[in-house]
Design a protein around this nucleic acid. Structure first.
Lengths: 182, 182
DNA sequence: GTCTATATTTCGATAGAC
DNA sequence: GTCTATCGAAATATAGAC
């Protein structure tokens, strides 16, 4: 979708319906056959992006994995997602104030689910005495920062693949939680 | 400044000159005695914020400090800055696309100075063999993420002081660079 | 479904009185 | 310097022909 690129490049409010129309080679009038308003378009992008981000984070969990492997896999996948879909992720994290109150509530639910998921992973490692952290939720927040902020600075022409950034962040995450190493 | 709060709360483009006027209890006409345009207002906030951020990062360097103490002090101060002035920092990091080309170039120079500063600190630790990192600039980027992203989620009613977040991030930074501990 | 044309609103910025 | 009033441009969204 052209709107995704534009919202991410310039921000939601800076993007005009004419810009979107021009990029896809349509008139503004024709676009309104596909969605009711600009905010609805933002909400659809935002909610889908939130759900896919959570799916990326929650996907790699395997039964029987060690807390370290589990956390590394989560950070690796969540980071890779934020690099690969950095345009959508920018909208997800920086365009919340463009949503209506009802739509905002919908995406906040997903955000809460996301942070709870990573907190639980840390908590399991602490319980198993393989992690040592200054505070579970504070470190969870820091790990989310590490993953999420990738969307702010990542560009395809950086010479680094999303997978490489993911691998780096997985390693850093294990260091941050003080994981005992094999 | 009222504009700072509004730009940070809703974004630059979402903030109307009438909103700013209303918050400070002035008319829009009266405001234009104080600045030439909305973009000029954004630029002033952005440049000042950038410079103060760099000053916070570069301030704590002391002669004779160990690489670990030095890096910890930098991350502590830079994080504390981003929590304390999270409204300004939001503008600094998320409202770059609202600037004119000339003004953008000015702030990009400060940003480059900032990342170079933290890279150098890591490089000194690696040279002294007290840090062990997967890559100097990649880890520098990650450290910046950790500090900068604080501005995205910090709120005063969180029950945590900026200094506490700063202390946490300083500890996490030392873990990330694999600093040898006393 | 897409076009051209336009209705309607709202924006940033200015004019002129005080 | 601040006010009221307003200009001119630009925005979202709609109307009606094809």
């Amino acid at each position: 979708m052209a709107a995704i690129e534009l919202f991410a490049e310039q921000g939601y409010h800076a993007t005009k319906t004419r810009d979107i129309a021009a990029r896809i080679g349509m008139s503004t009038g024709a676009m309104y056959a596909h969605f009711r308003s600009k905010e609805e378009l933002l909400f659809e992008i935002s909610l889908t992006g939130h759900e896919r981000g959570f799916a990326a984070l929650a996907g790699p969990t395997e039964a029987g994995a060690t807390p370290s492997d589990e956390l590394a896999a989560m950070v690796r996948a969540f980071t890779t997602y934020h690099a690969t879909f950095h345009t959508i992720a920018k909208i997800v994290h920086y365009e919340l104030y463009g949503l209506t109150e009802e739509h905002l509530a919908r995406v906040l639910e997903v955000r809460h689910r996301t942070s709870a998921w990573i907190e639980d992973a840390i908590r399991r490692g602490v319980a198993a005495k393989v992690f040592s952290v200054p505070g579970v939720s504070a470190v969870a927040r820091a790990l989310l920062s590490l993953c999420v902020d990738v969307a702010r600075w990542y560009r395809e022409d950086l010479g680094e693949t999303p997978a490489q950034i993911g691998e780096l962040n997985a390693e850093l995450a294990l260091r941050m939680v003080g994981a005992e190493r094999a």
